[in-house]
Design a protein around this nucleic acid. Structure first.
Length: 439
RNA sequence: GGCCCCAUCGUCUAGAGGCCUAGGACAUCAGAUUCUCAAUCUGGGUACACGGGUUCGAAUCCCGUUGGGGCCGCCA
């Protein structure tokens, strides 16, 4: 049997992280079985159907690398089919009209859902449903209701496996009843557990807490510069695991071993810290070419375009330091590119307040000027011999030197920094700073 | 209110009756290292929700309790 699965988001203008995971599991299952991944847009509510919100979905899937094989199909363009199917039920006496709406005659006996993940689930009717088990399939304004269009679409598109959030488990009996009413065997169902906020509450875009609302949207992770492969990898691990302690995994490998029965039945909480860690893992292993390419939107380089070799040399440090590309914006990198870099007052106060600072920096500049090869070991030797000569600790030269050439007290190891900056910049900066810090 | 699902460290999870005095990862703490932040290395603490069964033996099976989530719409 050819597997056909679908992702059916409603175009509400953003992608919920839970939806993304559902899309991912559908995609994984399709790839695992060599089946077809269909994209269907649930846009029967015309008010939500805007081009921009559709693009949000398309862009999100593309960002994650979840390519669909068919679609997107739009429910809004399928009104005729829903009407025909409604007619069919009406004619067969399995639906009737009341108060202008069309209702489906729900079977009175409980229906068992054979679920690939949850097992056999038999749902008794709730007390309210006991009063009136039938449900509306076409509104009085003539628009079909979710349950109807969902089933009709799955039927028409020959969907074989419906992989969706557990929030749909309770109304799956309705869907099964509808399939049977059409004289068709329902597809296989697989309900995956939900993704919750860190505090265990439901993830929602409309959460009054803006922080939590932000967590729920995929666009947050795109904007914050997370690596898409990491987001995808992390989401795979929410409700599924390879059982052998592996976590950072190649997507090809996941496609190979992913299967529905191993999906967990427990809800998972979203842990941004772990996602961040994983994003970092992916960033660190990027080639410099790829890193620069992806970092582009988050790089603010002042001054004229830098030399490529120089840029790569200095960026290596930041690549290993950050976990999301947006963190690049927090790094003070101006000193690599322009001479008017700012001096951090704290750093100056801490490292350059000694009265001999100016004099020492001048001597250091002279020592550096004398090195034959501008490389790490020579610079280290030069600095250390000067310290010995002056009878001071290495650190008494290292810290002022760092502040002099970078304006700050943090950064890569000093000798490495000097090596990358180059002789001309370093000597000029040391001499200028010597003036600046003269008592 | 009714119905459904679930329950292992703070979090994600491994665990399908003896390999479990419960393993891994993230987070956290301590130490090491260093010119700073970071990284790295080493080490530590922290979990089978509770109560009953079944069994020679239970994190693993059954029942109940509690807790969490979901659904019961002319929303999707």
């Amino acid at each position: 049997m050819d597997v056909r699965v679908r992702f059916a988001p409603s175009p509400t203008g953003f992608l919920h992280i839970g939806s993304v995971r559902t899309a991912l599991f559908n995609w994984l299952y399709a790839r695992h079985t060599g089946g077809t991944f269909v994209l269907r847009i649930e846009d029967t509510d015309i008010a939500r159907n805007t081009e921009q919100s559709l693009n949000t979905i398309l862009d999100g899937l593309k960002w994650l690398g979840l390519h669909h094989d068919e679609g997107p199909y739009f429910q809004s363009q399928r009104a005729k089919i829903y009407r025909q199917r409604t007619r069919q039920l009406l004619d067969a006496g399995m639906a009737y009209e009341r108060d202008g709406a069309i209702r489906f005659k729900m079977p009175r006996e409980p229906i068992t859902v054979p679920d690939l993940i949850a097992g056999n689930v038999t749902r008794e009717l709730a007390d309210r449903e006991l009063q009136d088990p039938d449900f509306v399939i076409v509104r009085s304004d003539g628009n079909p209701v979710f349950h109807l269009v969902n089933v009709v679409d799955d039927l028409e598109m020959k969907i074989t496996h419906v992989i969706r959030g557990e929030d749909h488990l309770s109304n799956t009996p309705k869907h099964i009843a509808l399939f049977r009413a059409f004289g068709v065997e329902p597809p296989q169902y697989a309900h995956i557990p939900m993704i919750l906020n860190p505090d265990g509450t439901k993830m929602s875009k409309s959460d009054p807490d803006p922080g939590k609302a932000r967590l729920a949207s995929l666009s947050t992770y795109i904007e914050d510069g997370y690596v898409p492969e990491a987001v995808r990898n992390y989401l795979c691990l929410l409700g599924w695991s390879p059982k052998d302690n592996r976590e950072k995994m190649d997507i090809e490998e996941i496609k190979r071993i992913f299967d529905l029965p191993q999906v967990l039945r427990t809800n998972a909480r979203f842990d941004v810290a772990k996602l961040k860690w994983m994003s970092g893992e992916y960033i660190h292993e990027l080639s410099m070419e790829e890193f620069v390419k992806r970092a582009q939107p988050f790089l603010r380089i002042p001054g004229p375009p830098p030399d490529r070799t120089y840029l790569h040399a200095l960026l290596r440090y930041y690549q290993l330091k950050i976990q999301t590309f947006k963190e690049l914006l927090d790094q003070r990198i101006d000193y690599w590119f322009i001479e008017e870099y700012p001096f951090d007052p704290e750093a100056v106060k801490k490292s350059c307040s000694a009265p001999q600072t100016g004099e020492r920096l001048l001597k250091l500049a002279d020592a550096f000027a004398a090195v034959r090869h501008w490389d790490l070991p020579s610079l280290e030797t030069a600095l250390k011999s000067l310290a010995t000569e002056l009878g001071i600790k290495n650190a008494d030269l290292i810290h002022p030197c760092r502040v002099a050439v970078s304006g700050q007290s943090v950064g890569m190891s000093l000798y490495h920094m000097l090596e990358v900056l180059g002789r001309d910049r370093v000597l000029a900066r040391l001499r200028r700073a010597a003036e600046k810090f003269r008592p």
